[in-house]
Amino acid sequence: MNASGHRMGGASWLDRAALAAVAGALALAFLTPPEATQGNVARLFYLHVPSVSVAYMAFALALVASVGYLVSRRMAFDHLAVAAAEVGVVFTGFTILAGMIWAKPTWGVYWTWSARLTLTAIMLFVYIGYLALRRAIEDPQARARRAAIYGIVSVVQIPVVHFSVVWWRDIHQLGTVANPTGIQMDGILLVAFFAGLVAFTLVAAALVTRRYALAVLEAGVHDAAARGAGALAGDAVEAPRIGARAGEEHG
């Protein structure tokens, strides 16, 4: 159970590498010259675009792990799926936060209803739903199976959602919304972008590693608790305690 737990205490080489990469990426993001058309505000690009790339990578990893679980029925794949999905949700959140803060000075509003923005928000809710579904199921095997199926169904549905939203946007033709890719990137700006991508990938990898280790620990807790309950079934029933704490009966 503790196989990957030993390095959880301190910082692993991955944590150190991620921190170093973040420091480097921040230096590049802040020290490069301002972008030609948007000026300093365009520095949010180095935050926003790497976040969304990493989020997509994490969701792709969650899909691979879900398929892996259904094929092999090994719990390690389920641990990897939940780790990747949770980190993907976090980075999708970063994407939306950074995108909104970038949109306000650029277009005057926090939300532009572009197809991409709407899709990102829908994707966020799909994977929050995935995590909520997991929280609702107690039994590890049942949870792994149902979550894997939902994970695959969502990914199959996402291209359809994508086309529906893009088609809907094309019909409405909101001319007021500027094109977010109207940024001139070359030379050092491109280097800053790739530094951001590397840094965020390492941060996400470090977080997925830790979340995976947590999933292993939680599985261990579940097994240990199940063994305990089997030995002494009567222990699971608590005598009612009279007084201020009486309300805390388990539901």
Binding site: V109, W113, T118, A121, I122, F125, I128, G129, L131, A132, R135, V165, W168, H172, L174, T176
Partner: peptide, 28 residues
């Protein structure tokens, strides 16, 4: 402990806010 409101009801309300403009149009 269960997170029913935090994980289900609140995201459900938020997605309702997101879906309405898809139905009625996004004219700001």
């Amino acid at each position: 402990r269960v997170g029913e409101v935090a994980w289900i009801t609140i995201p459900f309300g938020a997605i309702a806010v997101l879906l309405v403009p898809l139905a009625v149009g996004t004219d700001l």
